[in-house]
Design a protein around this nucleic acid. Structure first.
Lengths: 232, 232
DNA sequence: AATCAATCCTGTTATATATCAATATATATA
DNA sequence: TATATATATTGATATATAACAGGATTGATT
């Protein structure tokens, strides 16, 4: 990892500032900025490794990353996708000395890593900052939990529809997008088998619900897709 | 709900004190104690209702409660069991003005409800308290998430074994216990159908893995049960 | 261009789970 | 006590999903 100058705007204007750190004084923010590293991760590279010690708070500036874990059977499970301006791994940072999940870039990423001890000190001295952090953690946790619970009681078609809508609405905010993960990874994300992911995608294409061109997916019939997401 | 004198030990000696509020000064704790209500809930009664406004922090002193939610399809899902000394609903209390889940007693319960605004003020003024809270939230969230993720990739036999082990090891700390929930509720908890819960329990009994007498369950062959939990 | 490996895709078959039906048992209510 | 109502149970059947097999396509490497 390289400690570099952040190539983007200064922190005060970055998503970095606007979200979790908004309650810090200018002085405290300067202190933080001085104690962070700026990093790149190419697609496929690991940003953090499950069970390895937590070095700091990871703020994803640009790109997408997957959060994965290897379950006891050795099967790999993707538990979520991190998008720009996310604090990744926030969930477990207060309950463990090591990361509970792998964080792996699925697009080229830029991220900042903020010193762990410094943040901990700020929490102790700045209660409003702590409150913001509590809110953020709570949101992230709620969202993830809600997503998993939603997925659990859908069957395969519903799950595939769900994930297509997720990328279109939440990640790319466009009905046409470049699917950043393989069929295998979709399967790992929504707990199904690769063959069935493929099959159902083909089925959706056959029924003119989506269009597939190489790695690009376009939603053609959003109503029907939404219906399947809810009732499939 | 009645505002009563707590019949147990004073807060300073209660689980209440020992966990999340350990970093408070005596003065702050007194303040908190003065602003809490003590309540009973009989088996089946609702302690908090999904989508209703959050009144305060709920601390479960005695008894068991289930956390449920009604998903968009109207199907009821149990997302977890709260045990004594749990802060229930902690997960969403910072991200929402209303409860994300129902909290329903499955045994007679005693619980305290601590004033919301007071806790919020304490967070702002006492950073170490905030940190403790962050840790607690993080733990709860991790545990719940981990449980759901574990359950997701098990099949039915594995899930049933999981839930029996859960009650024996985590809740009652004994191989013989009184199952506090119905077959239907087990089904809602581990995402399966009542008939299959019954069927698999009978199967386990037939195979001399458990003994069932009325509402009592006893684990007879813990090794085999653990094996099924892991590989079933 | 040739080779290899990974991913993608489709059909067939096996297995797990849900659904339906019918009865028994317990629990609440009048 | 009698009657209704929810829960528990078991069997038969339908459906959804996984597993297996074989081929097509893509991408990287030599």
């Amino acid at each position: 990892m390289n400690k570099n100058i952040c190539p983007g705007n200064v922190c005060a204007e970055c998503g970095f500032r606007s979200s979790v750190f908004s309650k810090l004084s200018d002085e405290q923010l300067d202190q933080l900025t001085a104690n962070k590293t700026f990093n790149f991760a190419r697609k496929g590279e690991t940003i953090a490794k499950q069970d390895s010690p937590i070095k700091g708070f990871i703020f994803l500036r640009v790109g997408l990353a997957k959060l994965t874990r290897v379950n006891p059977d050795g099967r790999e499970q993707i538990i979520g996708i991190a998008t720009p301006n996310d604090f990744v791994g926030l969930l477990s940072i207060f309950s463990s000395k090591s990361y509970q999940y792998n964080i792996i870039a699925i697009e080229d990423c830029e991220y900042c890593c903020v010193d762990y001890n410094l943040v901990m000190n700020l929490i102790s001295t700045n209660g409003d900052f702590a409150k913001t952090l509590l809110e953020k953690i709570s949101q992230v946790s709620d969202l993830m939990m809600g997503t998993r619970l939603d997925l659990e009681l859908r069957q395969l078609r519903g799950r595939v529809a769900f994930i297509i809508c997720y990328f279109a609405n939440e990640v790319y905010k466009s009905p046409k997008f470049n699917l950043p993960i393989s069929r295998r990874e979709i399967a790992e994300l929504i707990d199904m088998r690769v063959e069935n992911v493929v099959r159902i995608l083909s089925e959706f294409r056959r029924d003119n619900i989506i269009r597939i061109e190489g790695t690009t997916i376009e939603i053609v019939d959003p109503d029907k897709l939404r219906w399947i997401k809810m009732h499939g």
